[in-house]
Structures are given as structure tokens and as C-alpha cells.
Amino acid sequence: MDKNLWRWIELNEYETPSVPTTMLAKRWWQKMLQTLRPSRVEVSTANSAEEEPKGVEFKFDEQPLLDSLNTLLDQQNQDDPRVTWLVLAPASPAWSVIRKWANQNGWQPVSMPQRDSLLTSSSVDELNIPSEPWVVDDLSHGFVRHPLGIRWLQNFLRKTLQTPQSPGLVICGSWLYYYLEKTHGGLNRQALTLRPFDTESMVTSRIAVSRAHAKRLVAVSEGHPGIAAAYRNAFAVAAEQTEIVLEMPQVPTAHGETSTFVIYALLLHGGLSTFLLGEVLNSIAPNLIEHSLNLLRSHGIVRYQDDQWSVTELGYPAAKQFLAQRDFNWTSC
């Protein structure tokens, strides 16, 4: 397997892989049709996200990703108390691998408050940064987009702005990072992300079974390996197959404004409980939020699992396009 498959790059070097013009034209045409028929509510790919995977399920080999982290973070010895931000897209396989790596290498997790407790009006929990190498394995756990829920995160940003005693690793979702960068005056930190997969990487990593399949996967996932793997598992494709259809769920345009807020809130927090979603969107009527969630779920855009609402892997490309179309605080990463 190619050693450069998993390569960490500076966030500002991130470029979405190019998509063939024919596929772009097809996507544009579908968008136009959807725009011109806004009231039409279809459930064509409704439960595709919850369908049983067909054939053998693809799983990432964790070792090359662990090796890439070793290469990246071994360069940081303990005398260099830098804080490195690793910015990950939703469903990236790196989420779990980084936790494993930090555990294996004895990086201490920073204790974080419970999300629900962030909204109590008492003062924010004391933040203790360990004197050994430390890791925040998902920054969104310390954040709720609410006047009370933002205090811990602001405290954390202030503390890590001062040079800490030991090196630190902050794992942050791409949507939250983009929000923080824009609302907190540019984070100006060392932020890295995984290089997106191009056609070649899709074939090398064996996510795609053929070049034609790889091209389709790049187009639909915009180079996110986690999303591509979800599409590979949802739509069985044979190596010799030339006509490949990867059907993307469509975001219904009915209740567009509420759906926009719901999708953005779920992406920003990496999933939310019904209670917290209501608190984040407390200026929206609860019945509208509920209706929007049910509509989005019926279209395979969101799911409810373990008391959490989140955007599905298959629904992510459509959700991202939906926000981009509305110029709604979206990120290309």
C-alpha cells in the first residue's frame, strides 16, 4: 500500500479533487430539477442509509494511518510544547485511529465537561491542562452553540493560546474549526488535515474496485475517504461493471430554512440529542424542528442513533451541497 496514502497537510493547502465535467453537469441538472420542483417530496433513497450493506463490508487498514501519525507527531518531542490541531471531516476514519494512537503513546486525555452540564448557569468547570503530552479527542464535546455552552471552549482557546508546558493534540471537526476560525478572529494555529483522496488513492486503498468506480467515488465524496467507504458499502459494484450508479439522497427543499439550521447544527456539533438541538435552535418552534428532522430522516440525510441526531455518511455530500447552495457558513474540508 502507498505510504503517502495518508498524508497530513496544512489546512490551507486542502483542495477538493476535481470532478469530471459530465458528473458536474449531471449534478447541476439534478439541482435545477430540485429547485424547479421544490414542493415535491420523494422518498426515493429514503432508507438507503439504514440499509444492510451489500457484499463484503470495506474496512480501513488502521496501521498506515497510525504510521502517518507516528511520522507526524514523533517529530514533536516533549521539549516542544506546541499544540497541533488535527481537523477532520465527519466520518473520517482518523477519528478512532487518533484516539487509539494517543492511548498507545500515553498522551493524556484532557478532562472535558458533560455536554448537558455546559448549559447550567454556574461557572465553567476548571480546565486543567496536563503537564505531560495531552490530547483533546473531540473538541465538539466541550461545545454547545448556546451563550452558556460556548464558555468552556472560549476558556480552552484562551488557555491554549498561552504556551502550555507540554505538547498537545486537539482533534476538531472541520465544521467546528471553520466556525471557530471565523468567529474567534482566526485561530492562527498549526492546523493539519488529511489530504483528500483522488482517483489513484481510491484504487490504492482498495475502497474502489475499479478506476471507473474510483472516479464515481471521488465525485460523490469530494475526496473524503470515510464517505467514499460508506458509498462503497451501500452500493455493491463489481470490478468489471462500467455503468456505475451511486445514488445520493436529496435534501428536501420543503421547510428549507429550518432544515438549513438543523443540518448545520448537527454538522457543527458532530451530532446532538433532541434536547440540545432544541436549546441550540431555541428561536425555532420545536414542532418545526421535529418536522424537519423527520423529513430529513425519511430522505436518509439524518439518523437517530444512541439518543443522538446526526448527519448520515451517505447524506453528508447532499447536506454539504445544500448548505453551500445557500451560502450557509459551509466549509470545503
Binding site: H146, I150, K182, V280
Partner: peptide, 9 residues
């Protein structure tokens, strides 16, 4: 910063 209507740019 916590209003859903906010343009963060």
C-alpha cells in the same frame, strides 16, 4: 455568535 441566523464570515 450563537444565533442560528448569524453570517459567520
Amino acid at each position: 455568535l450563537t444565533s442560528p441566523y448569524l453570517q459567520i464570515h
